[in-house]
Design a protein around this nucleic acid. Structure first.
Lengths: 194, 194
DNA sequence: GAGCTAATTCATCAGTGATGAGGAAGATCA
DNA sequence: TGATCTTCCTCATCACTGATGAATTAGCTC
């Protein structure tokens, strides 16, 4: 549409890549993956659409770069794994804190929702869950069936996340986090220390 | 590409709509929503792409029609709601039976994964979960916080589904259904009858 | 047979992600 | 200084996508 009439490298320092990154992050967080286009990102950044490909390779590339996850869920587990008493309660409390915070929760939600619909992302996420969440927990558990029990715990937690943040099922989505912890923690704790 | 040279209504009875429906179902189940195009459906059905829109209105329309869910999850809950003893165990057993069966599980998985990535589908599914799953369960529960407790139960169950069938996290994805029920049922039962 | 409706293809539209060609500025090295 | 190379950037274009209006033909009703 709008011809720029200035081909070639512009004079002075260049911040186009940062502007693209910022515009991409804004749009992906607000509108999700499929409702954002290369061209809409480029337009918001005041740049030709080809430049997005030039810097980030592909749409998935921009997405991955824009949503650098600020809080790795695995670190939560690692930090709380010290002792297993009230493990469920502490993990849930921190999980809600992260996901309820827009700065960290929105990117996580965007990434998770893409993972469900995209095969290659799904494989990455599924392996990460096993490697960084389930295995460390299982290593601390006593008794038989450590691995499946840890997996059951992870599944339950991800279900809460799924319902509250991805599907937004009421009343789970709107309820106070502390109250939710109170209701869930005892049952989930039983999964790992029966 | 291939010109047909025969415009207008063809002679004889017409089964084009059924062929489209069948081709759509096949492709959606095998390749998911985004990797299937109107044109690929039409080609498989031996028909012009515009005919798909003509019969089903839109891509979402074909999708919804093609994946008429063969087993409504709500009926499982309704049928098991008779008494609350071992409710968790019975529901889990039936849930796994439905999702492990490809005929019913694949469409459910396809629908769920689209719901996560598409806003309008998400609203529909989220309201359906509240209306058809949580509210009926809550109505049977005694004590305070019936609604949130029912929601917590639904969240936990959907988490198992999410991990096992959508993300396919190991070992939850490959483990025997009966064993999974044994590990999960007691904890989940506590959510609805503490 | 006249007219209406249903079924079908075709042409076309605006939009998508991606890629190669080319141009202009800066960096490097003689 | 100048020649060459690399980086940054736009433009044109490709093969697709979902969608829609026009044209065409068959069957139905009166």
């Amino acid at each position: 549409m709008k011809k720029n009439l200035s081909r070639g490298r512009p004079a002075g320092k260049t911040d186009a890549k940062d502007r693209i990154h910022e515009a991409a992050r804004e749009q992906f967080l607000e509108r999700g993956y499929h409702d954002v286009s290369m061209r809409s990102i480029a337009a918001a950044a005041g740049v030709d659409a080809a430049l997005v490909s030039y810097y980030f390779g592909s749409k998935q590339g921009v997405f991955a770069a824009a949503l650098q996850l600020p809080t790795n869920p695995a670190t939560i587990v690692a930090e709380e794994l010290g002792d297993l008493d009230n493990f469920a309660q502490r993990v849930l409390t921190r999980v809600f804190a992260v996901w309820d915070n827009p700065r960290s929760g929105q990117p996580l939600a965007a990434a998770a929702s893409l993972a469900v619909s995209d095969l290659s992302f799904r494989r990455v996420l599924s392996e990460a869950v096993t490697r960084e969440l389930i295995s460390p927990i299982a290593a601390r558990l006593e008794g038989p069936d450590a691995e499946p029990r840890a997996a059951a715990f992870a599944a339950a937690v991800s279900g809460i996340i799924f319902s509250r943040y991805l599907l937004a099922v009421e009343p789970t989505a709107s309820i106070d986090a502390a109250q939710l912890v109170g209701q869930l923690a005892p049952a989930l704790q039983r999964l790992i220390t029966p």
